[in-house]
């Protein structure tokens, strides 16, 4: 194994940028490389590891977070693009120890297996229900088309979303 002797003093590093972003209601500020992806900022800088990385090419949706309330894929957004904006991750769903209806729905309807796509899937669901509180099965299936799940076959995810929708509308637990 050949090792680098020492970091050359004149090493060109960066460019860097200062990023201020509110995550799950709490302000954060950090100096990061301009190329830092939002998902790495969330996972490696803020240590919020509930947001996952699955494909790197903006196909699978494991990295889905809410950016100013909209579901987006954080592996295809730079941390600097989130400057001054609001990010919500899976860690921000439960409030005061009380599960969000979407979290409850995924448990009640067995909407997850390995759990890897689950945070992204739930964030997409939160955004969907904010916009469409009573989605049809077809609307749900299209809304989660950017989130791939390899375990569940989606049937129970659809039910989980429906459960959450009903709960959020004040329908109680079916």
């Amino acid at each position: 194994m050949d090792e680098a002797e020492a970091m050359p003093a004149e090493a060109e590093v960066g460019p860097f940028a200062r990023v201020r972003v509110t995550v799950n209601g709490a302000p954060h500020e950090a100096e990061v490389e301009t190329r830092t992806l939002l998902v790495h900022f969330i996972r490696d800088v803020l240590h919020l590891t509930g947001t996952h990385i699955g494909c790197d090419t903006t196909n699978c949706g494991a990295c889905t977070v809410l950016l100013d309330g909209k579901a987006v894929k954080s592996c295809t957004i730079l941390a600097v693009q989130a400057e001054g904006r609001q990010v919500r991750t899976v860690e921000g769903l439960a409030e005061d120890g009380k599960l969000h209806p979407v979290q409850e729905g995924f448990v009640e309807e067995h909407g997850l297996q390995c759990g890897f796509c689950t945070p992204g899937m739930m964030m997409t669901t939160v955004a969907l229900l904010a916009k469409n509180p009573n989605p049809s099965e077809d609307e749900i299936r299209h809304a989660i088309a950017g989130n791939l799940c390899r375990c569940t076959g989606y049937v129970n995810i659809v039910k989980a979303v429906q459960y959450a929708a009903q709960k959020s509308r004040g329908g109680g637990s079916k």
Binding site: T58, G61, T64, L67, K70, A71, V72, K73, T76, I77, T124, H142, A143, A145, G146, N147
Partner: peptide, 9 residues
Amino acid sequence: IADPLVRNM
């Protein structure tokens, strides 16, 4: 075009 999340960006 792509999927709903990509369409948000």
